[in-house]
Write a protein that binds this DNA or RNA. Structure first.
Lengths: 128, 128
DNA sequence: CCTTGACCTTCCAATGATTGGAAGCTCTAT
DNA sequence: ATAGAGCTTCCAATCATTGGAAGGTCAAGG
């Protein structure tokens, strides 16, 4: 499989596949005589894994750990769970932060006439 | 006021003040004979405005618009409200996205024993 | 056989907001 | 006079991703 085919098969585009290789997330692909990267099913499997993990918001560093845990048959599920739990915590902190912004903005917007007059509680709040 | 004093007064550190100047968020500060940036109360006021807007998650581009609306006495509150509303929408989309991740992860974590065994539904999910 | 176009390679750069450091100048206080 | 704090500019790194340029390779069709 060429990188383009692996990209279609995994849902990770060629640019990112090369990038993941360069930062060590995935092992260095074998090369054809002409220097083209060559992929097997197992490589596509790793790429799909990475894609799913990205979809759950894990950082590349965390994904590197997840991949190595996945590959390591002597891992303990507690290691995986710890990684997941701490990630959930970070996500929830971020959500709280964003929700607080929304709450503030909603409150301010509610009191903004939104008409042709210049008077606006949103700007007033920012200015104080 | 020097940049350091303006930083304390506004809560925006000197590095960021220079950065905001360089990208045109705030007007270019006047200079002392020695080339030091000199700030007045009104400059600090803008900086505080920017800081508050950042705290509400607005992007620098949006903040640039907000500052210009704030400075423009012929603005309409509908312009401000539109900016705020579209920002709220983006925030809520982000929250939904993060919440979906949390939901999935919580579900997977719940079924993960988190003990010394290697078996782990989190990895299994990522691998499928 | 040769050309065309699609694909591959590497390298460099940009995004957005922030932070860090280096090298060098200015100010203040001792 | 000198030390130390603060200022200046410039360059670089973060994080994940995307874009482009310049050049090599492959497969198909004339």
């Amino acid at each position: 499989m060429n990188i383009g085919e692996a990209a279609v098969a995994s849902g990770v585009n060629p640019k990112m596949i090369r990038h993941y290789e360069s930062i060590g997330i995935i092992p260095k692909a074998q090369r054809s005589e002409a220097g083209y990267r060559v992929y097997r099913e197992s490589d596509v499997h790793i790429l799909s894994f990475v894609k799913k993990a990205r979809g759950l918001g894990f950082s590349m560093i965390e994904i590197k750990k997840l991949v190595s845990l996945w590959r390591n048959k002597t891992r303990t599920s507690s290691e995986v769970k710890a990684l997941s739990t701490s990630h959930i915590k970070k996500l929830e902190e971020k959500i709280s932060e964003l929700q607080a912004m929304v709450d503030t903005l909603r409150h301010l917007s509610k009191h903004c006439h939104g008409d042709s007059r210049p008077n606006c509680p949103i700007l007033e709040e920012l200015a104080n």
